[in-house]
Structure formats: C-alpha cells, structure tokens
Write a protein that binds this DNA or RNA. Structure first.
Lengths: 136, 136
DNA sequence: TCAAAAATGAGAATCGTTTTCATATTATAA
DNA sequence: TTATAATATGAAAACGATTCTCATTTTTGA
C-alpha cells in the first residue's frame, strides 16, 4: 500500500473536483500544473494505477488510451455506459443489469466484472443528433 | 469500398481459418509470413479496419492493443464475453442480454452497440483455477 | 533521529498504430 | 484491349500513450 504523498492527494483531489468527468493522464497532469501543484507524468500514471486498484477511481479503456473517473464508493450495481459519439461516461445503477450479470454467472458460468466492463453505445442526445443530421 | 486484392483475401482467409481465436495485427502478419503470403504490417492494419467496418470481423480493444476475431454473420444477439485471465473471447447468443439492451434503450435512453461492447470478467475455467489456487 | 522502504521526476525506451510517399495494382471507360 | 484514374501496397519514419531507468527525495517505523 502506497504512502500518502502530496502528489497522491493532489491527484485524488483533482479527480474528485471533476467527478462525473473523465480525464486522461495527460489532462490530469496539465490540470495539476495549472493548479500550482505540478506532478510528473510518470507519477500520475503510477498513482492512477494505485488509486484504481484501491477501488477509488474507474479506469475506462478507449482506443486512444485510458480515461479515469472518480468513483470512490461504487454502489452494488455500478455500471458504466460510454457514448461512442460524445465520449461521456455515465454510471448507471440498474437492477436489470445486475440481474443479467447474475444470469450470466448462473447459466453461462461467466462472472462479469462490472468495474472492467463498459457498455458502449449512443446516448440519447447523440442519438437525436444523428437522427436530425446524417449518421455521424 | 475497397478493391479485392490478394492481401485482403489472404488476411480474411487467415482469420477464417482461426475462427474462435483472437489475433493481434502482428500475430496475423507473422502467420501470413509463415504461410508464404507475406503482407506488410501497415496493410494488415488497413485491411483489418476495412474488414471490421464491413462487419466481417470483430475488433476487441484491450489494454495491450486491439485483437481481431472472425465473425462474418453475427446473429441477432451476438455478444462478446472476454475472460480477463485467459484472454479468450467467446460469442454468446442470449435472449436475456438482448432484453437488457432493449431495456436500456427504452428506459435509460441508451442504445448499446453490441459490436463495440465487451463484457469482461472471468470464465468458468479460470474461476475454478482461482478457487483452487490463490487469487490470480 | 536514523536507516530502510518507497515515491518522485526527467528523460529514455517501448510498443502499438498511423502516416508518408514512391510504386504497383485494380477498376472503369473508351 | 488499352489507357487512365482511383486505390492499395510496403518500408520506413513519425506518433503518441505508456513504462522503465536511475539518481534523488520523501516517508515510514524502529
């Protein structure tokens, strides 16, 4: 278990201040620099890894790289939905989803790890946008 | 729409021959080289992109890079499950899953794109393995 | 307070992927 | 067919996210 360093605290505080948003490691480092508490990029990566395995933040893997989002106390059913158009990630607490995962476990012998699973698709806003203008 | 080139055919044939497995672009290129029909890595990347948007293959994004799998005629409910331990990707055709996606669409206004969504977790074999020996 | 353990930061190294560009191939029209 | 325009190819360079290295600093625990 890592020590408490000011860098660690600064990173967690920064993510917390932007709860609901997703940040890349580079954005986070830039944000910290602007805030006066500059942290080396390598350290940002290292701490994000620690914070994730401590369960304090989410890691969302995209094709361009990883995104991180604050999520300290995930509810029983904390599911991630990511819109492939606008990139927003929302947390959904939905019994149906939990029920499905239970079904997959009991009937298909597969235990979904909700923290590593991102349901990718299109949010309402972007679906409307597509409907109005052409696709994409 | 891309032309029919021997490279394209060789790539598709190679993926087809290994249906059920996932291959990285580099593995695919190596495989082709071994088979005598060498294809440049850049071309492998370009064709994989084409084949995916044509719906002939699946692309599975992992933390180490992309994996590709043959899947020419996805059934109505073609869902991807990936074991985070052994890395295997299986296709699941399950009504419950389709029902859930319908629910997310109608009640939560989010349309999941099944081709881009990978349910990550642990398969039965690996779960047993973990139960027998220590975790991981 | 001291020594051991761990974290930091800057830059180099890695590695998957994309781009560049000159060349070769394919398709289409004459 | 043949000529021409459109597209694909391959090798190498470029890119970008991430990890590693290593000398230095900070933190912890005795």
């Amino acid at each position: 278990m890592p020590y408490t360093t000011k860098q660690r605290q600064a990173i967690l505080r920064c993510l917390e201040a932007r709860a609901g948003e997703t940040l890349t490691p580079a954005e986070l480092a830039e944000e910290l620099r602007r805030g006066g508490s500059s942290v080396g990029l390598a350290t940002v990566y290292r701490q994000l890894e620690h914070l994730e395995s401590a369960g304090l933040i989410h890691r969302i893997q995209t094709e361009e790289g990883a995104l991180y989002q604050y999520c300290p106390h995930p509810a029983h059913g904390c599911f991630l939905l990511r819109c492939e158009d606008c990139g927003r990630v929302v947390h959904l607490d939905c019994d149906h989803l939990q029920t499905l995962y239970d079904h997959l476990a009991s009937e298909h012998h597969f235990r979904v790890d909700p923290r590593r699973t991102v349901l990718t698709g299109r949010c309402q806003d972007c679906a409307r946008e597509v409907a109005r203008h052409g696709a994409n």
